[in-house]
Design a protein around this nucleic acid. Sequence first.
DNA 1: ATTACTAAATGGCGAGTAG
DNA 2: TCTACTCGCCATTTAGTAA
Lengths: 242, 242
Amino acid sequence: MALNLVAIKALLNLYAQNGFSNSVRVSTPALAKALGTSQQSASRILIRLEKEGLIERRSVGRVTYVRVTELGLNKLLDLYTDLRAVIERPMDFVLEGRVFTGFGEGAYYVSLPEYRRQFREKLGFDPYPGTLNVRLLSVDSIHNRRLLSKIADVRIEGFRNGNRTYGGLKAIGGTFNDSELCAVLFIERTHYGDDVVEVISPVYLRGRFGLKDGDKVRVRVTIPKEKVEREQVGGELVSVGP
Amino acid sequence: MALNLVAIKALLNLYAQNGFSNSVRVSTPALAKALGTSQQSASRILIRLEKEGLIERRSVGRVTYVRVTELGLNKLLDLYTDLRAVIERPMDFVLEGRVFTGFGEGAYYVSLPEYRRQFREKLGFDPYPGTLNVRLLSVDSIHNRRLLSKIADVRIEGFRNGNRTYGGLKAIGGTFNDSELCAVLFIERTHYGDDVVEVISPVYLRGRFGLKDGDKVRVRVTIPKEKVEREQVGGELVSVGP
DNA sequence: ATTACTAAATGGCGAGTAG
DNA sequence: TCTACTCGCCATTTAGTAA
């Protein structure tokens, strides 16, 4: 017999008030308010939680005290550890596509001392002078490119040199064909579309893997934890307290 | 419009299969099995999740691929962080009671070199030769005593000296009257009941607080995280995979 | 084999209300 | 005031079934 989400929220609410090591004084109207539900439902939930052995109730006069049982705590811990096992683990973004020859500016830009210095300092390697252009194949890869362009946290600043200005870009480190260190570049004003990434590496990738145009390659970016943007924070969860 | 628990489980299940950075192939019977529900419910859940923008579906031939959206990920993260905020925080166990004079053996035992050495090494202080007996007042305190006796992780070994054997005990560090370092002892073969704790401390507590029999005292034990026993592991949560 | 509709059963909800 | 009952009502479920 599976518990409802609201019931879990109620349990969490009680636990949040130290309900495991203290008897917490609760009233069904107060609980109802905290859960955004009716008094009747709050009453039902407490009855249910008690029946399932997740809480213990004790009436002193007309006020009731509730204490979360070990079973109840375990219920919360189970949910928590299940979530944690899934969420607190590295997230892999794979970009798969085919090599193609671009406009050939990559080599020029990468070898500019301003850029090169920043790559060395912020990415930790001295890039081979040139970018490898990859046209992404699957919708997943294109989707991942979009996500990564937001996650990428290595900011390479633009600069000006005389009357010429050079734009900024973002980068993020990854692995090329599951073996070589590389970085994916997200150039602010690129000539390419959403289905293209430009990759740099300390090694000459075309040579290292004997790549010709049209060959399939794979870039893997691993995000240590959940570093994913949390722009939408529509928290509709338990508000703890009275 | 609040989501159901089963729907959350479904979302988690999809996410667990790298559903955020990969399109996951799902079938409603398989999902139903993983969730312990019917095929029809699985179908409805997917429809619902898609309607709420938490997943995206894509049909290729007769198989459908599902991908968790950023909104969907945020939903999981919200739940997770809410749980974490409550669970991953120190837990306080308060024992309140009144001082009473016991059989007077405490001083003898504590001053035995074997015990004393272990206290010093495992608890980090040299105990005043004597225990303070506290008779617990509230049901919460008695409950907490029971819990702490299971949580207590400082094991003091028994020993024998000639023909006499001295029993083992467990202890856990705490704070006496919110100011002095102390430890609660859980003696294996005690003469006292479940409503009594024996407390030791580097200082002479009776003197330090001017305690007479019947005076109220409070011992607080703080457990860093959730170190609580998880004997009951009735996991009825999402089983990940096919 | 799928997915997902409709129908009937179940279960949860809030309003009203008793104790 | 409180808790928790009953009662309609609506949501969610499963079974059957269509596509």
